[in-house]
Design a protein around this nucleic acid. Structure first.
Lengths: 197, 197
DNA sequence: ATACGTTCTTAACATAGGTGCAGTAGGCTA
DNA sequence: TAGCCTACTGCACCTATGTTAAGAACGTAT
């Protein structure tokens, strides 16, 4: 696993928009490397999110506290550009925390730089596409949630070969699916029993 | 109810971004008025959405066909700027239809004009904010769906004084809440019984 | 007026998808 | 060695919602 390889970021951006060397140097100049050890928080609930991040490697988990329980909202795997959108845009305290599940390499950009960089057409274009993409993802999750049970969603993760299955503890997977760990166990049992026969 | 009052649109935009007369004339030049009678479709599932719309007055309903059933996804009330995002951006057939529940006055802009207008900084700025806002809404709906039952969501609509309660037939409200009309009736009965005591 | 379709309500009953508790087992850390 | 956490399993139980079936209220067309 390479660390701090700018090309990962650049290639990632190139998937969204064409980007020349001049744009790229402007963009990368705004980002600074930051290492996040497994188990530590990149963002803590209640604090204001003041950065835009790019995840180069590792794995992150968004979660909230709900009735004294740690509830996993979703995961971010590399390469991905993200922030705590609501907190970042409104400058209000974040409702969720972001935890590294594995040692992660991220690049971060300050709010001030972010606002400045939006003047750059290439970046502006990228951001718009990214936000639309996030919107599509959210809609997709919403749809799945309405149409499928936790079991069906878990089966689909398997069918789609989600890399999360190998990397995420089952307790987090369970809360991500919206069920108790016992229920996930039962589902797993059912699936593997059937698979054997 | 005034018809085709450009000021409604302009004031709406002003809530997102400052807008001078020159910008405004460029923007409004791209939009053309269109009346949608109650009960008719602004967009039909399977067709490609080729416009951006602004809803000046009336009420719209997004719905999809799912297992031979008409399922309401959400409603749009004025003033609001919208489109079938996925279809519009990807030029793929829309998965949902948009129906007018009341006689509605909308303004429409072609795809070509939309792309051109994005070059205008004011408009670009507005679009980015709008897409972020839509993302917030979707996230909020997702959260509610995970945390609340249909009954709780219906109660909250009442508590928040949603205007939909007066305007939308209960059958659509039921499918919007994700339950059968009978179930909504049961919930309503329960609420009103309790309210009386 | 009458008849018809649609929407909404009510009731009895069924059920899927989940919870909670309790006990067991394996692995890691101190 | 003990202690702790995670995961698995069996069982009883719950509850939100579906299903079915019937009737009431309302508007519209004939």
């Amino acid at each position: 696993m390479s660390r701090y390889d700018q090309n990962i970021f650049r290639n990632y951006l190139a998937d969204y928009t064409t980007i020349d060397s001049k744009d790229w140097s402007q963009i990368i100049a705004c980002f600074h490397p930051k290492e996040v050890k497994a188990g530590t928080l990149l963002l803590e609930e209640g604090k204001i999110c003041r950065h835009v991040y790019f995840l180069e490697s590792g794995l992150l988990r968004y979660f909230v506290w709900k009735d004294g329980q740690d509830v996993t909202k979703f995961f971010t795997h590399p390469p991905y550009c993200f922030t705590s959108q609501r907190s970042f845009n409104t400058e209000q305290p974040a409702r969720e925390s972001i935890e590294a599940l594995q040692d992660s390499y991220v690049w971060e950009m300050s709010r001030a730089d972010s606002l400045r960089l939006l003047e750059l057409k290439t970046w502006n274009n990228f951001v718009l596409k990214l936000v639309q993409e996030v919107q599509f993802f959210t809609e997709r999750i919403l749809e799945d949630l309405q149409n499928e049970t936790a079991e069906q969603r878990y089966r689909r993760m398997i069918a789609e070969g989600s890399p999360l299955l190998q990397k995420v503890p089952l307790k987090h997977l369970a809360s991500y699916l919206g069920i108790a760990p016992q229920s996930l166990s039962r589902i797993r049992k059912k699936i593997y029993e059937h698979a054997r026969t």
